[in-house]
Amino acid sequence: MYDTAKTESALDQTETKISARNVQVYYGDTHAIKDVNVEIEDKTVTAFIGPSGCGKSTFLRCLNRMNDTIDICRVTGDILLDGEDIYDPKVDPVQLRAKVGMVFQKPNPFPKSIYDNIAYGPRIHGLARNKAELDEIVEKSLRRGAIWDEVKDRLDAPGTGLSGGQQQRLCIARAIATEPEVLLMDEPCSALDPIATAQVEELIDELRQSYSVVIVTHSMQQAARVSQKTAFFHLGHLVEYGETGQIFTNPEDPRTESYITGRIG
């Protein structure tokens, strides 16, 4: 399995999508992320693994500046998206978040209809000129979210009425609808049952064709199944970053090995 993942990623044209240099994050006096350097490739699934509280979600939220909404959070260092510093004062965080979509741990459909959930982003950003175009975007996004067949007859039903797995795929479809370049996923399957998890994982693998996907996960099996690159975080440090197969079969750092074999975590 690791071998196929490796060959697949080797086949794709790899270029750096996001590169982080010397990133430090502070919550008040707490130093949450220490000196993280990482290059995230385009059209690749990158997994962030590590024990709880190691900073992987915090780092993920730095990539689309969601941490701006937390008053006491301070980020230093450079994070470049396509070579542009996203923390540059000229960058509008709102525009950035449209380019770097995010899917959250708990499915969070808005209390609106399925259609309005998907149309939310395109409407805000003016992506459709008329209703027909909007319909088209909604259908395309739901198809790519692998949920079209299940909801096509009830687009007017509230999104909160779907099952957990359907809700999460709806949220992924919603994130796709704004045509992002990068998709960040913060433990997208932790609230789902195994069947829904399998569906979402399959979807993530398909999304790799068009996007750079970054996924935070607690499940090492999941990281091994869906990702081509894996980063291991521990106590705010990026301990090891490399090909997923490499990390799981032959880690360089003893801490990575301990975590993967279950000795720390």
Binding site: N64, V94, Q95, R97, M102, F104, N108, Y120, C171, R174
Partner: peptide
Amino acid sequence: PQAMRDGSLGLGAT
């Protein structure tokens, strides 16, 4: 829930 706000902000809404 804060998740609603996060979801909307994460889609690039002001």
